[in-house]
Design a protein around this nucleic acid. Structure first.
Lengths: 137, 137
DNA sequence: GTAACTGCAAAGTATTTGCAGGCCT
DNA sequence: AGGCCTGCAAATACTTTGCAGTTAC
């Protein structure tokens, strides 16, 4: 495993308040894609001394520091996940809202190829397969 | 070229009010990705007899009928484009917000392959390359 | 000690909706 | 004619922010 979120926060010199610790722990223990409200619920369960506003401020801060990735699944709210989770992509079933994680080696190469073709350089791994109308076979 | 938006509306039996005609025309004449506010501005320029609420209702209706695609570029508002535009994908520069359209044959095959692997079937062509941190070379 | 952080509530965006009147077919 | 559509404004949903008090370092 790679460093915990808290370790990365410390490495970046972030002041670790009680609230930030709790939010970091919640995120470390999540392998799904919680939105702010859900994070707030999980964090409040551990420590009620926390507000929704702080959740919003914290995830934004963590994202700016590259600790979290912000995801959008098309339902109008932002979702969050540890930027250090093993690389994977998301496939969203627009009818059910189901999120499927997957990995594909070709995507790695393709990301690189397309970016290069367009005169860009990839500095991260996040990619979304987005908005594909799907039906179960 | 394929059918106009208005033709597809008629084919689907949608009542063509003055407002819907104007919005359809604006969309037919757009090759970018306007949001609701921008569509409202362009439509108002042609005919001031239109409200923002109607723009929202109309794009939602058109999307449900498969006439428009809804895009999300990570800035919190929905963007719209004709679902019949030539197939292409979007690469978003998260720093500048710049949207780059591109086409890549491998993506076609990859979409199909991944969907199949996961037990899904693609019924459309829309895909987004999303959330990739980029830097100009 | 002091600058950064937090809770609370109010403000800000983007989008949706109830209602009374207007317009396609 | 009759139901669908529209404008307006209020409501909703998500997120941000001003301020006064609190806390990490």
């Amino acid at each position: 495993m790679s460093e915990t979120i808290q370790q990365r926060c410390a490495a970046k010199g972030l002041r670790m308040t009680g609230q930030r610790k709790v939010i970091a722990e919640v995120l470390e223990g999540s392998d799904d894609h919680p939105d702010a409200e859900e994070l707030y619920a999980r964090a409040s369960a551990r420590d009620p001394r926390i507000s929704l506003a702080t959740v919003y401020r914290t995830v934004k801060l963590f994202q700016e520091r590259g600790i979290l990735d912000r995801l959008e699944f098309g339902d109008g709210r932002a979702r969050w996940e540890d930027a250090r989770r093993d690389h994977h992509d998301h496939l969203i079933d627009e009818t059910t809202g189901q999120v499927i994680e997957f990995v594909d080696e070709e995507i790695e190469a393709l990301q690189e190829k397309i970016a290069r073709k367009l005169g860009y350089r990839l500095t991260g791994h996040r990619m979304e397969l987005f908005g594909v109308p799907l039906k179960k076979l």
